[in-house]
Design a binder for these strands. Structure first.
Length: 190
DNA sequence: TGCCCGATTAACT
DNA sequence: GTTAATCGGGCAA
């Protein structure tokens, strides 16, 4: 069984952690899969929620690394982030897509679809499939709620601009498993 | 207090 | 390709 990722893994720059998460396994209460898409946000980034300083919503981003920052998007969806870097630097990695491997029936039930490709393809879908909500904001990325296991081989990682933002759009801080069919959107061909 | 808009998704045309 | 759904955060007044 691959080792659990621990504090030392999270306590680095989001730009180091984000690509290293591709291929890792994320489980939440017995459901989840392989991480195939993430995006990095650091405090100096105008697209980051932490950019304008600490507020009640983003407070977890300013706390210790290795915790979940969960926020509501468009008043409808939940999005899951992993807080990184030394405490106070307010960086986080948005988990955007998984290749489902575990707990498929529960995920299908929560999503209301049998289509495996779309179960966890996108930050909102992923949280719906796993049952992640605002209650998980601030929760540690470790058992019993979360389980994050290291990858056992180094995958080919694709890089490109982030999705759905209106500032800093040129920064290539989206990372994905090259060729995966479980991405929220394909990466441009190299 | 009021207004605008978003780290999205699904259902349209 | 376009748009509604839906609501809290952030900023102007």
């Amino acid at each position: 069984m691959p080792r659990l990722l621990h504090r030392r893994f999270f306590a680095r720059s989001v730009h180091a952690v984000a690509p290293d998460l591709i291929g890792a396994t994320l489980l939440y209460r017995g459901a989840g899969g392989t991480i195939v898409e993430v995006e990095a946000y650091d405090q100096t980034d105008p697209a980051a929620h932490s950019y304008r300083g600490r507020t009640p919503r983003n407070a977890v981003m300013f706390g210790p690394p290795g915790h979940a920052y969960v926020y509501r998007s468009y008043g409808i969806h939940w999005c899951l982030n992993l807080v990184c870097e030394p405490a106070g630097s307010a960086g986080a990695v948005l988990i955007r897509a998984l290749q489902p491997t575990t707990g498929l029936p529960a995920m299908r039930r929560r999503r209301g679809t049998r289509e495996e490709r779309l179960l966890c393809a996108g930050p909102g879908r992923l949280c719906q499939a796993l049952g992640i909500t605002g209650d998980d904001d601030g929760r540690a990325f470790e058992p019993p709620w979360f389980e994050l296991r290291a990858r056992t081989t180094v995958p080919e990682v694709a890089v490109g601009p982030r999705i759905g933002i209106s500032v800093a759009v040129e920064q290539p801080w989206r990372y994905g498993l090259k060729g995966s069919r479980f991405l929220s959107k394909p990466f441009a061909a190299a």
